[in-house]
Design a protein around this nucleic acid. Structure first.
Lengths: 335, 335
DNA sequence: TTGTAAGCGTTATCAG
DNA sequence: CTGATAACGCTTACAA
């Protein structure tokens, strides 16, 4: 690869001049400029960002750590991040932590060594504490760590869960089951809280057996769904708190030769490509995943470029309950 | 951030010695080694990969350009890539080209400037020609460009399509529609070829109206499906060549109050989380997406590290027809 | 207006 | 065995 020095030689100017025309960082006479430009073309010159970064101490790269790109929710988040990063001339380094704290730490150190300009982090677990904090801005996404002094963008999980549950109650359901996500996670806790508060505020009592702890994966939706539906006196409705577990739940319902919504109503969480083509079309709490990626990347870049300097930013995105066909109205007295 | 020089000063040794202990690249007396190690800890030293890269001309980073991470097929591919990259200590830079040739070019130049060690490319379009070829190895994934002198890993699309179509024929179908993907793409061409050859080899004639050109997106599955099903004499089976278009097709079938497989049989392409929970469970051609990512990354890293040097490598992965419930057997004479 | 030279943080070559 | 020192390719004072 041609270097700035090769160009200088060919154009018969100094490397400073070459640099000046490349970055339009200083006036260069039209004559020299032309000579340089020509040499640039001739040698197919590409600036070496490594050298540039070393000098400027900026890499124009963003780290992104998420549990698993394979989860459609995070896929959309990443797409949002990538789009704005690209727009601002940043590059995205993607890492999957698999909810593994150690893997996450390893990645963070790797990214640190790579001198990323900033990090978008959907932290594994909840108790995030990184000894000597890295010297780049971090935006926590989707989950807020215990330590509150951090920037974050999350969705209002409490509200989403509250509305989902409330909707079911309005339909006449009282025996409402819930399959929650990975215990300890911010999202899980908040959704659980939303469910409980909705129940409480309508004075419908929570049956302990109706509260199942899943782990966010398809298999747990299946397992917990089965437990729920095999209960002697089973729930008439189930609130299942993510897309993968919903799939698992649908699978058991089917296997048990039950019908939705005739036998069980479902409110799901997450809006993905298939939610509205399923039979019945699913009523679900849609999260603005792409938007989360977009806004978090925007915030991060603002931090990096010093446009946002004061205080702690917390952006809360609103979920939407999309009512479709997976819940039925219970007639009076029926349960 | 502490530099190697700070360490040297603190440990009272030369920077060369520090470098030696960091990289165990030369013998250092236990005494000095201990002093250095201590200083390293004390200052929370992290090597600066930028400086390292500048010197060594290796960045230990891989570029990945795909059309859209939001497509579940590519999501799995990327996951496979990321896993092996991580294993070998490489970092992944992700780019979505949106099938846009220009965007792709811009990305390639960006990655070139970043001095990635190698590139995994699911090229937009088919006529890929990058003037002055970059000085890093490229592995083409999923699609083979016109220029045959490149490494690639693809799946046997022809075979997948052939088997899908053949299966339908065996079931007694003769009026078999097809919704193909983005025209011009290698995958599209091959699947079309597989369909045609299966038809020909069983001597069932292809109705021109049954061959619909989609673009790989949900909407086109819907549109083309509608066209197909509204035909006066419509197909009894449809082969739809990717996951998103399948969703679209299912949507129209539903809207038209048709039943699958009673009214139309479907063979889909791609195996994703929902294929076996849908009603009916979908018969589909499964592509080893994760495997494609894994193997392509492995090949790329071998190239980078000089372990594979000779010839052009072409890895062909085999698809699998997974038979489930979306196709029915046609009784003799019925059509 | 243009050129010289220092320095970013490493690695690697050579003397000592 | 250890320590100077010269690159790597670029940006940016500062000098001319």
């Amino acid at each position: 690869m041609a270097t700035i020095r090769d160009i200088a030689k060919l154009a018969n100017v100094s490397i400073a001049t070459v640099s000046a025309v490349i970055n339009s960082s200083a006036y260069v006479s039209p004559l020299l400029k032309r000579r340089v430009t020509k040499a640039l073309k001739e040698l197919d010159y590409f600036p070496n960002d490594i050298a540039r970064s070393l000098r400027s101490k900026k890499t124009r790269s963003l780290g992104v750590i998420i549990p698993d790109i394979t989860n459609p929710f995070f896929t959309s988040v990443v797409r949002g991040i990538e789009d704005v990063a690209n727009n601002f001339g940043y590059t995205v380094i993607l890492c999957n932590s698999d909810e593994d704290h150690n893997k996450e730490k390893v990645y963070i150190n790797m990214l640190r060594s790579k001198h990323i300009d900033g990090l978008l982090l959907a932290a594994a677990g909840v108790n995030v504490k990184y000894g000597e904090s890295p010297n780049f801005p971090i935006i926590y996404i989707n989950r807020i760590p215990l330590n509150p002094n951090v920037d974050s963008v999350v969705v209002n999980n409490f509200k989403g869960a509250y509305e989902a549950t409330h909707y079911l109650i309005q339909l006449g359901h009282t025996r409402i089951g819930m399959i929650s996500g990975m215990p300890g996670l911010y999202t899980t806790t908040e959704r659980l809280r939303g469910y409980k508060e909705a129940m409480a505020s309508s004075k419908v009592s929570i049956v302990k057996d109706f509260l199942k702890q899943g782990d966010g994966r398809l298999a747990s939706g299946y397992e917990k769904g089965k437990e729920l539906l095999r209960l002697h006196k089973n729930p008439t409705a189930i609130f299942v708190t993510n897309n993968l577990m919903t799939l698992g739940l649908i699978k058991v319902i089917d296997e048990l030769h039950l019908l939705c919504p005739q036998d069980v109503s479902i409110v799901s969480f997450d809006e993905v490509e298939w939610t509205d083509v399923f039979h019945p079309k699913l009523t679900t709490v849609a999260q603005p995943a792409y938007e989360m990626g977009k806004q978090s990347a925007e915030l991060l870049i603002s931090r990096i470029e010093g446009k946002v300097t004061k205080g702690i930013k917390r952006i809360i995105l609103e979920p939407t309950l999309i009512i479709r066909e997976s819940c039925r109205k219970l007639s009076q007295g029926q349960n």
